[in-house]
Amino acid sequence: MSKISKDRKYVKRFSKPVIVAHWVNALAFIMLYISALPMYTEFFDWMYPLFGGPEVLRTVHRVFAVLFILPIFILLIFDPKSLVAWFKQIFSWKKHDIQFFGAFPKEVLTGHADVPKQDFLNAGEKLNSLLTIACALMLICSGLVMWFPEFFPRGLVMYMYPIHNIGLGLCTAVIIGHIYLSIGHPNSRPSIRGMIKGDVDLEYAKAHHGRWYDELMEEEKKSQKAG
């Protein structure tokens, strides 16, 4: 089946399980973030009553922690192919990926820059994926040790608090960039459709993911010949 729609306007980008996994993760992150604030600093203590007190908030935080870990299993069960493809993408770093970062600031600030043709994920998206995974690993591993300290040596548990804290800081910085570039910046805004409906404008794909677009065209040719 062709990935390109009949009217040649849209091209399939993300599968249903990927979209579900993304939004479950996003919802869990936001709720974890909000429920973390009053634990993080007394400045947000006024939020405790909203959750029904400090004890309930800690339970809420754990419920969403489970939800935060769930997406990886959604992908493993329902769409392992996309998961593998994602990992292959984010660990593939070539010349055009490195060059991307040279042109990126100009692209963001002016909306016009000479960017070399990019893969299915551009270098920025690859970096975002890697950083998100790194932060998530930091938060999940340290969080589990903090949740079940009785199973771990005390010296290890002690270091999990600062790691959880640093993970939160890094994650926040990454997420702000991610949200801005998906719905905030005028040039990359069309990309959000990929994470909602699952397809993106073919013209957008051509302009932002040249290498992926070329691959798509190759596939089209082949399937037409075969057909």
Binding site: E107, G111, H112, A113, D114, V115, P116, K117, Q118, N187, E203, Y204, A207, H208, G210
Partner: peptide, 8 residues
């Protein structure tokens, strides 16, 4: 207009 990827 999105002519910001080089067309090699």
């Amino acid at each position: 207009g999105h002519d910001h990827e080089q067309n090699q």
